[in-house]
Amino acid sequence: MNPRVLLPRLVQTVRPSPLGPVLLAAGPQGLSGIWFVGQQHFPDPADWTHDDAHPVLHEAHAQLTAYFEGDLQTFDLPLQFVEGTPFQQAVWRALQNIPFGHTTTYGDIAQRIGNPQAVRAVGAAIGRNPWSVVVPCHRVVGANGSLTGYAGGLDRKEHLLALEARMNSPIR
């Protein structure tokens, strides 16, 4: 018999973004997730409390808005891991080190976490990243530079990379 894992009580809200509505969730220690509504691996928030005024959710939405408006390059939000294996969490932490406006490959992430043979597992972990945009999984591309995989859809990934390229350009 598997003991039931008790997750911390989460609060959530849905907010607009230029790429469609996003579900934001927070626990007692910080932001627990940001997902585009309807994306792959979308959580079931049925047991989560709705709270539009929660300070972490409010700040997350404010920072997302500033990012989409071209006024923010680095997110400063406390993240609370409520799921994920140690391997997945290592991948998600490695994603946080990809500089704004740059891309890297799945193989590079596998190298960074000390497991160069785990390229496919890295891809699967990236696909389950619970912090869309904030933990920049959209900055990971195929070994040949192709846009491969994004739980929020390749059209969103392409938009995010183009936004960062414009923001990183000396001429805006």
Rank of each mutant, 00 (worst) to 15 (best):
P3W: 10
P3V: 14
R4F: 10
L7I: 10
Q12T: 14
Q12A: 13
G20S: 02
L24S: 05
L24W: 00
A25E: 10
P28H: 12
S32A: 15
S32G: 13
G33K: 01
I34G: 03
I34R: 02
Q39D: 10
Q39F: 06
H41E: 11
F42I: 09
P43R: 07
P43Q: 06
A46L: 10
D47N: 14
H50D: 12
D52K: 11
H54I: 03
V56M: 03
E59N: 12
A60F: 06
H61Y: 08
L64G: 02
L64K: 03
A66I: 03
Y67T: 04
D71C: 12
L72A: 08
T74L: 15
T74I: 15
L77A: 04
P78C: 08
L79T: 07
L79Q: 01
V82F: 07
Q88H: 13
Q89R: 15
W92E: 00
R93W: 12
F100H: 09
G101Q: 01
H102P: 10
G107E: 09
I109D: 05
A110Q: 03
A110V: 02
Q111C: 12
N115S: 15
N115G: 12
V119S: 06
A121F: 08
V122I: 07
A124D: 15
I126M: 07
G127Q: 02
W131T: 02
C137R: 13
H138S: 06
G142F: 03
G142R: 02
N144C: 10
S146D: 15
L147K: 03
G149H: 12
A151F: 00
G152K: 06
L154G: 09
D155S: 12
R156E: 08
K157I: 03
L160M: 06
S169F: 02
I171H: 14
I171W: 12
